[in-house]
Design a protein around this nucleic acid. Structure first.
Lengths: 142, 142
DNA sequence: GTACTGTCGTTCGAATTTGAACCGACACTG
DNA sequence: CAGTGTCGGTTCAAATTCGAACGACAGTAC
């Protein structure tokens, strides 16, 4: 449980640091940033709401709220889903993409400074595979 | 950044799972549980507010709120700090201790099932040392 | 076609978190 | 001992989260 303690504390501390950096540099929250990243990676720079919520790991209602915020900021827009009339597509706008490109370097710098650069390649590799294993386990057991 | 992605997703998923388990088994939130754990480990089962907030990694105001909640539930009580009239001590009550002892096994079971048991000794060791390194870095750079 | 069951996204209310503002008490200097 | 700056904890408003409830559509069975 030493491992667990360290994991929890560190993830909370990192979360705080990330949040602080994003807020200062672009007025974004971490979930909002994550949304932009996921959308920018998706084909057509768009995703269904539910799928996006799963990816970012927030509730559907939280995603609805954040997409509305991002829409007000002009970084994302909603579109109808052609294949399913219930569905909604979140689409990354040009402004959203350029915002992401502007913000990403500073964000990654923090991540590197506090996590990546402190570990050896081997440590990093081991940790990544460990995280992926437990992510897999958590996602599949819903 | 694959490492980073995996880390963020996994920590959020774990957080959700933990929260769900604690809520169901004892009506506690994760921060509340963390508070009880820290207090039970402290000498005299008591801690100063600020120190506790640092340990649990929440803001001072969030701690004030949660201690009030736990006080209502009878798990914690406040006491004056003899050495500093400004200070407040959060003290774990008997009820708080027995609540913790009742809840801890189920909590640890989840942690083990999704994190600890899925990793080899080596992975676990690497991850722990990595977490401790970055925790140290984050805490000292405030 | 009709009925059933499940999925999608939103809305709602309640709970929680944060940072800023604040007050009282400490510590230190002159 | 007054003056100044800092620290500890609370209060406040604003933002965000979640789960439950809801209405609309999809998919299937009959």
């Amino acid at each position: 449980m030493a491992a667990w303690r360290a994991f929890v504390s560190t993830s909370h501390l990192l979360e705080r640091r990330i949040e602080e950096q994003l807020k200062a540099s672009a007025g974004l929250t971490h979930p909002q940033y994550e949304i932009l990243v996921r959308l920018s990676d998706a084909p057509g720079r768009q995703m269904r709401m539910t799928e996006l919520a799963r990816g970012v790991v927030v509730s559907k209602s939280a995603l609805t709220y954040q997409i509305t915020q991002l829409e007000k900021a002009g970084l994302v827009k909603r579109a109808n889903c052609p294949s399913d009339d219930r569905g909604v597509l979140a689409v990354l706008t040009e402004a959203g993409l350029s915002c992401l490109e502007r913000v990403a370097p500073g964000h990654l710098e923090v991540v590197r400074a506090y996590l990546i650069d402190r570990l050896s390649r081997e440590e990093l590799h081991t940790m990544t595979s460990a995280m992926l294993k437990t992510e897999e386990a958590l996602r599949s057991s819903v």
